[in-house]
Amino acid sequence: MLDLYSPGGSLLHRLPPAAKMLAMMLGATLLFINQSLPLTVAATLVILALYPIAQLTLKQAFAQVRPLLIIFMLFFAVQWYFSGLELAAYVVLRLAALILLASLVTLTTKSSDMIDSMTRGLRYLQPLGVNPEKVSLAISLALRFIPVLAQITREVREAQKTRGLERSVIAVAMPLAIRAIKMADEISDAIDSRGYRS
């Protein structure tokens, strides 16, 4: 499964995922408590400086912010018009710093490692009725189902094409949903018949 991880062996890559997540949450909270523009500029520069340390390029940093450029411009324009240039710069920069900080965690941590530390963490929720094994089963099933559903969609589209209905959402979605449920029923029977204790 493709994830957004960028391979490397830096200190940030080697830190345990839980530590990185905690640091990120702390950093995000501080960014929001702080109200001054110069400190936000400094924070952004520090976060950007972490990119080369994590063996990431500034191009990768920019790629994280790029999908939000339009909304940044919109926020900037609205804030500038209503509250002045300084607040506009502060708001947009704070947002950019937040995105860059969180991206740093995503880029330096494998999804599989993150899933492992999450399911380990779920042990502590066991008294509340959470069963980590069931969560693991759900995760692996979901990851397997995504390409299967994409495949079923292609097949249904192909079939509906012969009726000229490949562009009709309902004509594709309905058979897709029914086939998906049928597959799910068969899989759960198969799991149970192999003696999985639920």
Binding site: K134, L137, A138, I139, L141, A142, L143, R144, F145, I146, V148, L149, A180, I181, M183, A184, D185, I187, S188, I191, D192, Y196, S198
Partner: peptide
């Protein structure tokens, strides 16, 4: 039940 887990995974995947 197992069936519930499979459905949950299915709709997450959907």
């Amino acid at each position: 039940a197992t069936k519930d887990i499979v459905y949950i995974a299915l709709f997450a995947a959907l």
